[in-house]
Amino acid sequence: MMRFTGKSVLITGAARGIGLAAAQEFAREGASVTITDIDAEEAEHAAGAIRAEGLKAEARRQDVADETAWEALVAEVVAREGKLDILVNNAGMGFLKSVVDTDIAEWQRLMAVNLESVFLGVRVGIAAMKERGGVIVNVASIAANVAEPLFPAYNASKAGVAMLTKAVAVDCARNGWPVRINSLHPGYCETKLVADAVGALGEEAAGFAAATAAAIPLGRMATTREIARPLLFLASDDAAYMCGSELIVDGGYTAI
């Protein structure tokens, strides 16, 4: 299947994890992919591996919380590719701390990376797409749907992403702008972000990981490709009638 031949795709936080898996899948289906990440070396390594398959990928360093950098990046992609067809707001961070153990600096940094960056990306993305059309996929989380006492800041940020997605999707639809916007809600996935967050619990890490796996009806965390494929569905024409929707991919975690 080559659903994205000739499409220009921009994915944030794509040097690893779900973002990288999505970049690989988009490129394999014909897209020209721009990978961004705060770690420029890792981003270039990821893009290089995609190019080694004979596919199209570029890498750029990006601090997703930097408004000016967003505007310059999208302008560069449009100048290079002639358009921006698909934007995936994937970059994120997380930590496991109760609300009483989270300080204001940690809260503000997480909100800047997880929520404000999506606001900035959506705003510049719509501006680039509203004349000729496009798709925006915001990567939220089941943390937007289910509370977890050990990550209230993450819960709040991802719930914000979900509701922001709905508001801007309806705004585009009612204005007649041909920009589709939906959110993807992954469950627990085999990523460095999850591994690092759980590992930071120290002696409690093994117990938390075991309890989490036991709570997933399928009995395991997702692979990054198992999350990336539904993401590509949201970006494809197969999802043409989805507007402000939440697509949950969690192995049944929220079904019980």
Score class of each variant (00 low, 15 high):
Asn145Glu: 14
Tyr154Phe: 05
Thr102Glu: 00
Leu164Val: 12
Val170Leu: 15
Glu106Met: 15
Gly125Asp: 05
Ser98Thr: 14
Asn138Pro: 09
Thr102Ile: 00
Trp107Ser: 05
Asn114Asp: 10
Asn114Ile: 13
Asn155Trp: 13
Leu164Gln: 07
Ala173Leu: 09
Ile104Glu: 15
Val113Ala: 05
Lys158Trp: 02
Asp101Trp: 01
Glu106Thr: 05
Ser98Asp: 03
Asp101Arg: 08
Arg109Trp: 14
Asp171Lys: 10
Gly176Phe: 07
Asn145Asp: 10
Val146Met: 02
Arg123Glu: 13
Val139Asp: 01
Leu150Phe: 03
Gly121Ala: 06
Ala173Asn: 01
Pro149Tyr: 04
Ala140His: 05
Glu148Pro: 03
Gly121His: 10
Glu106Pro: 08
Val100Lys: 09
Asn175Met: 07
Leu115Thr: 07
Asp101Met: 05
Ser157Val: 02
Val146Arg: 10
Gly121Phe: 05
Trp107Tyr: 15
Ile104Thr: 13
Val99Gly: 02
Val118Leu: 12
Arg109Lys: 13
Trp107Thr: 11
Lys166Ile: 14
Lys97Glu: 00
Met93Ala: 14
Ala173Cys: 03
Ala128Glu: 13
Arg132Cys: 05
Val118Glu: 08
Arg109Leu: 07
Asp103Gln: 04
Asp171Thr: 12
Thr102Trp: 01
Glu148Leu: 12
Ala140Tyr: 04
Ile126Arg: 12
Asn175Lys: 14
Val170Trp: 09
Tyr154Thr: 00
Arg174Ile: 09
Val146Pro: 07
Cys172Val: 06
Ile104Trp: 09
Ala143Thr: 01
Ala112Asn: 15
Glu131Gly: 06
Asp103Trp: 08
Asn155Gly: 01
Glu106Cys: 06
Ala167Gly: 07
Gly134Lys: 14
Ile104Gly: 02
Ala156Met: 08
Arg132Tyr: 08
Asp171Asn: 07
Asp171Ala: 12
Leu115Gln: 12
Leu110Phe: 06
Ser117Asp: 03
Leu96Lys: 00
Lys97Leu: 00
Ala128Cys: 04
Ser117His: 04
Gly134His: 13
Met163Val: 11
Val100His: 11
Trp107Phe: 15
Lys166Tyr: 13
Arg109Asp: 04
Asn114His: 12
Ser157Trp: 11
Gly125Pro: 11
Glu148Tyr: 15
Ala112Glu: 15
Trp107Val: 10
Thr165Asn: 11
Ala143Lys: 00
Arg123Asn: 14
Gly125Arg: 07
Val137Tyr: 12
Ile136Ala: 05
Met93Trp: 02
Leu164Phe: 12
Gly133Gln: 10
Ala143Ile: 01
Asp101Pro: 01
Asn175Phe: 08
Ser98Gly: 13
Leu120Trp: 07
Ala162Cys: 06
Ser157Tyr: 02
Gly176Asp: 09
Val118Asn: 09
Asp101Tyr: 05
Val161Cys: 07
Ala143Ser: 03
Lys97Gly: 00
Met129Glu: 14
Lys166Arg: 15
Leu150Pro: 03
Gly176Leu: 12
Leu120Val: 14
Ala173Pro: 03
Gly121Glu: 09
Leu115Arg: 03
Ala112Ile: 10
Glu131Val: 11
Leu120His: 13
Lys158Pro: 01
Val161Phe: 15
Val122Ile: 15
Val161Asn: 04
Lys166Trp: 06
Val168Gly: 11
